[in-house]
């Protein structure tokens, strides 16, 4: 019995956070103009399509470049991405608590040729519940770990000011 109680305590202490309820994803942190990412907002912005290989077949994701969203939020991209600003990272968080990090430079089309997008569609249809409504797709990553699903927040963090 004691073992059962001890195991229960251990299990509760080690519990993972619950999935948060749906809220509108945002772009925030160290930016001048925080954005909310409604489906309508995304549809109205310049669209980018990327193709990734998933288990031997090609899958097409559509959405908006993360760099485009960061530019509109006032993050230091383009000509402003120099000096101390280069030491800036972007943390993407999901509603299940998962988090990944990109450097700001790798999201800026003026800096690197990378098509990392916030996707709202897969093969012409809305994302599945477990993926969306929004996710990031990093098509040139060799692993899918940073293509975060259930995107909740994109946060700009300057390491040096």
């Amino acid at each position: 019995m004691l073992l059962v109680v001890l195991a229960s305590i251990v299990a509760v202490l080690g519990q993972a956070p619950a999935i948060t309820s749906d809220t509108t994803p945002v772009v925030g942190g160290d930016v001048t103009t925080p954005l909310t990412l409604t489906p309508a907002d995304l549809k109205a912005l310049p669209r980018t399509t990327v193709t990734v290989a998933e288990e031997g077949r090609e899958v097409r994701y559509e959405g908006v470049l993360v760099g485009e969203l960061l530019k509109r939020a006032g993050a230091p991209v383009g000509r402003d991405l120099s000096g101390k600003a280069v030491a800036t990272y972007v943390r993407a968080s999901a509603k299940d608590g998962y988090q990944v990090v990109f450097s700001l430079a790798e999201l800026d089309p003026a800096f690197t040729a990378n098509d990392i997008i916030v996707a709202d569609a897969i093969d012409g249809k809305p994302l599945f519940d477990y993926q969306g409504p929004l996710r990031i797709v990093a098509p040139h990553d060799k692993r899918g770990a940073r293509s975060i699903r259930m995107l909740q927040r994109i946060e700009v963090v300057r390491l040096v000011k």
Binding site: A16, P17, E55, G56, Y130
Partner: peptide, 28 residues
């Protein structure tokens, strides 16, 4: 399905892919 693929449960990390199993192999 959302729970299955969530970080707290992480079922998909071992039972993943189209077979919902461990490692797979196929042409290519």
């Amino acid at each position: 399905e959302t729970l299955f693929f969530s970080q707290p449960l992480s079922c998909f990390r071992c039972h993943g892919g189209f077979t919902f199993s461990g490692a797979v192999d196929f042409e290519g």
